[in-house]
């Protein structure tokens, strides 16, 4: 796994209404196998930053290095999971979706199917390899998306609010599952969310961003032992601290928008 350096990254959106700052002078480092959550209110540039790391957007200034190599465009050292369930290819089965990246890499059919089955087992979908996405629930589709992003073995997993469109119970299950997957694979994960409890549950370190323009407001290390208990006093203390940075101190369980 590779460390990531983010150096003075700035991006300005050119809209018909004028220039809108996206992110400004964002800098931080991510260690190998570290789980980073980026939280912040809408418009803080957290998704913009993730899109820059993914290579979908090119920053106006600054640079991002993964394992010392500067990022230009997207590459197979990164796997991306989006929020939208529609990200899966409806014309491919769960297995077919997961093998896609391996197919692009030129891995032989038998081998890529073995790898894909293993990835689907990791997200507990080994019984659904032959199912088409439209027969799977939202949570299952997102699990296929995670397996798909991991299958070609990228060093970094980028996740843009992957569970935001799920119901609360499913979301809890998915967070536990992702924590397990991370423990097994030791990928470097950059996870964007606006849900503070989710960030405290998953992250080694939380980057708090503030809007207009998007800048890093604080970096908070979460030093709780895993698996974490969302009802423990220490957990709630962490949430409170985070909410303090976000300008909220009332109900700690409410997601910040």
């Amino acid at each position: 796994m590779l460390p990531i350096e983010i150096r003075d990254v700035t991006l300005v959106y050119d809209t018909p209404g004028g220039k809108v700052p996206g992110v400004k002078n964002v800098s931080f480092n991510i260690g190998a196998s570290e789980f980073i959550c980026i939280v912040g209110p809408s418009g803080c540039g957290k998704s913009t930053l993730l899109n820059i790391i993914a290579g979908f957007l090119t920053p106006a200034a600054g640079e991002i290095r993964i394992g010392g190599k500067p990022v230009t465009g997207h590459g197979m050292d990164r796997g991306v999971v989006f929020q939208d369930f529609a990200q899966l290819f409806p014309w491919r089965t769960a297995l077919g979706n997961v093998t896609f990246g391996l197919e692009m890499k030129g891995v032989a059919k038998a081998e890529r199917e073995t790898i894909a089955r293993e990835q689907l087992r990791l997200v507990k979908l080994e019984k659904f390899t032959a199912s088409y996405p439209h027969h799977l629930s939202g949570g299952m589709q997102q699990r296929v998306a995670i397996a798909r992003a991991l299958a070609y073995n990228p060093a970094v997993l980028l996740m843009d609010e992957p569970f935001a469109a799920l119901d609360a119970l499913t979301r809890d299950d998915m967070q536990r599952l992702l924590a397990d997957v991370w423990r097994e694979t030791r990928k470097t994960v950059i996870y964007v969310t606006h849900n503070v409890a989710e960030a405290v549950y998953l992250a080694d370190r939380v980057i708090v961003m503030s809007p207009h323009p998007g800048t890093v407001k604080a970096e908070i290390k979460i030093d709780l032992p895993r698996p974490r208990d969302p009802l423990s006093v220490e957990f709630l203390e962490c949430q409170k601290e985070l909410l303090g940075y976000l300008g909220h101190n009332a109900n700690a369980n409410e997601p910040v928008n």
Partner: peptide
């Protein structure tokens, strides 16, 4: 759906694969 093109691009699809494996079925 642009998200299919984006996802396929992330997974290393070149123009040829994009055409046959994403655009045509899409």
């Amino acid at each position: 759906n642009p998200i299919w093109l984006r996802a396929a691009g992330c997974m290393g699809a070149d123009e040829h694969s994009l055409f046959w494996k994403v655009i045509i079925p899409g």
